[in-house]
Design a protein around this nucleic acid. Structure first.
Lengths: 345, 345
DNA sequence: CTGAAAGCGCTTACAG
DNA sequence: CTGAAAGCGCTTACAG
């Protein structure tokens, strides 16, 4: 392989074909090659074919970095999420991926592990890539993060929950309303001493919003309220089972448990089954998210379906729309939720 | 906000602080600012502090694109996987993320949906980002893809299965050996008429390797062999249940079913429970992957644990090692697997 | 430990 | 529909 000579600004790297080489081979200018590749409609069919041929012959791979520097915009969409352990975020990312990939963008993924300092670091790094827009899970950020994004000035979509004042656009659902809906359902079913159980509900503040919506609804119905049962480790089915056992030792024992998510709730049902705890006879169990497996356990899990794939898709579509034609009229989309009642309550 | 004047090569964009602005403010040269940020050890503590201060005052965000172009290398690690629906790849990605993030790299994620044309497209695009290395799930690629990567010449790790001839480095396990181990176990338990059940085992060729290892082992033990039960849709717990029902209608009905993965197998156990099918009395059930939930269903699922998080971690570590100090001696790591015997067999 | 010069490989308006 | 010139914001060796 050829190497470029050592000169100021040069590095010792096998020299790959560049636009210039393709242009020479096709007998056109580099500009024409650039257009044939990026805006084929602007180039005559004849030249387009000659360029295509030269590209194939040379095995030319476009240098996206140079393109991004020259155009001050990269074909990437950064997505910042708080966790990958939770299937919800993975499915949301899939929804985003579906849409942005079709539009020729790549996904840059940042995982904050529910740490707002890390969120700031990710966003700051990502902005250095000159992306045309940004997708963030959540509406809670540090003030400096918000300031950074606002100064930056390009389109942003905050997804998952609908929040008080979005930075730009916002797609999600009301977790407070979801919690309230579950409280009403459990009371209507005649359960008493309702308990909320979740993990890290300070960091996972959407779970906290569900708890507060749940708790306020209990108050409004005049039902007994109690503090949530919490653990400071990530959710898992095994933990949901442990928390069930712990909850049943409380005095009075809960007549129903509303788990912060289906991972926990499914684990509770499996544990109940294993230990012969009657559900919902002794204790009713409900979850949140509507994971596929919630319908397969016995009894089936009553849960609330969060349309997370749709959140990803709609969020990405709004972002792409704003990138292409400027920010839209509708800044907020509440995708709602659906209560699915099954045997567990 | 200020905008730059319209000139050839310039775009109408609010002008953000650049290295030059930071340099002016700190009273040093841009080179020094670059070093203070990227190689702080090369700069005196005094200048480092002045630069830091200027950076904060101006809210300077490093332009990674320009840095990548100048240095012919981006701080990104592209990762190409065949699916995100499968928890296995998500956990592998988490293992990779853990390691590369600590080293200051970002993850570029490509999902091929088990389509090798899309794999080629992703890799081709990713190479245009000048990454220092590449992580690919799988060892099967189109010849043109292999040629592209080999010409490129930087470190590559192929993960998931140990394959015949890695492009560069390889971390995974032998899926054939895993299939054989499960066949031996089921035969030792006295089960007969063993059946393999999976989805899309042509595209998901690692599942195919498990089947072939399983099938060859049956042959070597003189046990009855039969074609696999397959479906041409993605795996899911619900589908595993359906396939159980279908399998039991075969003549002769299987004494044990080895599912291609735990998603299917867990679904089969839940369905068996719901329909009162005795496991393992009427039919034994086994899976592959060792998902957490496999230990929580009743009966517990016999499965093979694939150390996927470790595969991600080790793969990323090998890649970073090769990026820093050149390709290592050990090109292949077989991480092995573990058979976990529970009540379902 | 610090700096001046050159260059990375593209794309952007403008003119034709 | 096509092209010449300038510039994007950094980093790389080299010299001091």
């Amino acid at each position: 392989m050829k190497t470029v000579p050592r000169m100021p600004g040069a590095r010792e790297v096998p020299s790959a074909a560049t636009l210039k080489h393709v242009a020479e081979r096709a007998g056109v200018s580099p500009i024409t090659v650039s257009r044939a590749l990026n805006k084929p409609a602007m180039v005559s069919a004849d030249l387009r074919d000659r360029v295509r041929l030269a590209v194939d012959e040379l095995g030319y791979v476009q240098n996206r970095v140079a393109g991004a520097l020259a155009s001050a915009s990269s074909p990437v969409i950064p997505v910042v999420v708080p966790s990958l352990s939770n299937a919800v975020f993975v499915e949301t990312i899939q929804g985003i991926q579906e849409v942005v990939q079709r539009a020729g963008f790549q996904l840059l993924l940042g995982n904050t592990e529910y740490d707002l300092d890390r969120e700031h670091a990710w966003i700051s790094t990502f902005l250095g890539w000159s992306p045309p827009g940004l997708i963030l899970a959540g509406t809670r950020h540090q003030p400096r993060t918000r300031a950074l994004i606002e100064r930056w000035g390009r389109p942003v979509v905050e997804i998952m929950e609908v929040g008080a004042k979005p930075i730009d656009m916002n797609v999600g659902l009301s977790h407070g309303a979801a919690g309230a809906a579950m409280a009403r359902h459990l009371l209507e079913r005649g359960h008493a001493n309702l308990l909320f159980a979740g993990c890290r509900i300070a960091e996972d503040y959407r779970a906290g919003q569900r708890f507060r919506g749940f708790d306020r609804a209990l108050a409004s119905f005049g039902a007994a309220r109690r503090p949530p049962l919490t653990r400071n480790v990530p959710s898992s089915p095994a933990l949901g089972g442990d928390m069930l056992v712990e909850a049943l030792r409380l005095d009075p024992p809960p007549g129903a448990i509303f788990y912060a998510n289906d991972d926990l709730a499914v684990g509770a049902i499996l544990r109940a089954q294993r230990e012969g705890i009657a559900v919902p006879g002794r204790v009713a169990i409900a979850g949140f998210n509507g994971l596929d497996i919630s319908g397969l356990v016995t009894p089936g899990l009553t849960t609330i379906v969060s349309p997370r794939r749709a959140i990803g898709r709609i969020g990405a579509e709004k972002l792409l729309g704003a990138i292409e034609v400027g920010s839209p009229k509708v800044r907020r989309v509440d995708v709602g939720f659906e209560l699915i009642v099954r045997g567990s309550t």
